[in-house]
């Protein structure tokens, strides 16, 4: 087992290199790194020794492409053995180019086809409310993924339903072909969501954004990571 010293964040790059064999990582892989890292390191109530705890917080990676940052964080947190990363996308590896939730401890869903995570997250948030669980649901989508209409079905419903245990994280690298005039946050706000836009590389800003009070409303964090990513 690889062990970690002072700053586990600094170990993530090496973990990603175990998958890619490359010191430089692709834009789609690293655009999600900091928002996911901050979630697992500072926000989510999850326990790698009890990944099926019914009251755990849920993190749904809806934007399933470029998942190596996600895998690196799961390995760094202890959900999967670090050695698993070496066989990335091989025939017997549980880690593919799109994650399969049934193969990976700590991965809540399988994703890859865009626009599926947020509707599933709405269903989970409803169920957790029915059960009276304290668990929260976080769902990460991409700005281009918002092209898929299924997201807007979920955004409208969650807003009107006041689904405040739900937080959407939009990774904004300005990759949507036709863009979002008026800004991404406004698409959520008009539906009744709480919204904040922040620097997707700034860990303190991300933490503040995640923790912003949104009682009675679902919350969206638009994490801007720059057009190159």
């Amino acid at each position: 087992m690889t062990t970690y010293t002072a700053n586990p964040y600094l170990g993530l790059s090496a973990l990603m290199t175990r998958m890619t064999g490359d010191e430089k990582h692709s834009a789609s892989a690293t655009s999600t790194l900091d928002p996911i890292w901050v979630l697992y390191h500072r926000i989510l109530r999850v326990d790698p020794s009890n990944p099926d705890d019914p009251d755990r917080d849920r993190f749904l990676l809806s934007k399933g492409h470029g998942p190596i940052a996600f895998y690196a964080v799961l390995a760094g947190q202890g959900f999967i053995p670090v050695e698993t990363l070496d066989g990335f996308a091989g025939y017997d590896s549980p880690l593919g180019h799109h994650p399969d939730g049934t193969l990976i401890p700590g991965a809540e869903i399988g994703s890859g086809s865009l626009g599926h995570g947020l509707p599933i997250a709405v269903g989970q948030a409803l169920a957790l409310g029915i059960k009276g669980s304290p668990a929260r649901v976080f769902c990460l989508v991409g700005d281009a993924e918002l092209d898929e209409g299924s997201n807007h079905e979920a955004i409208a419903f969650a807003g009107r339903h006041g689904l405040d245990r739900l937080t959407a994280v939009v990774i904004d690298n300005q990759s949507a072909t036709h863009g979002w005039p008026g800004g991404i946050a406004s698409r959520f706000e008009v539906e009744g969501w709480s919204a904040i836009t922040c620097d997707g590389r700034d860990h303190a800003a991300l933490e503040r954004a995640y923790l912003q009070d949104h009682t009675g409303r679902p919350h969206v964090v638009v994490a801007q990571v720059g057009a190159k990513y």
């Binding site: 599933i120 269903g123 409803l126």
Partner: peptide, 10 residues
């Protein structure tokens, strides 16, 4: 999608 989420949560 909601049905899937409900089922995932038991």
């Amino acid at each position: 999608g909601v049905a899937g989420g409900l089922a995932l949560a038991g």
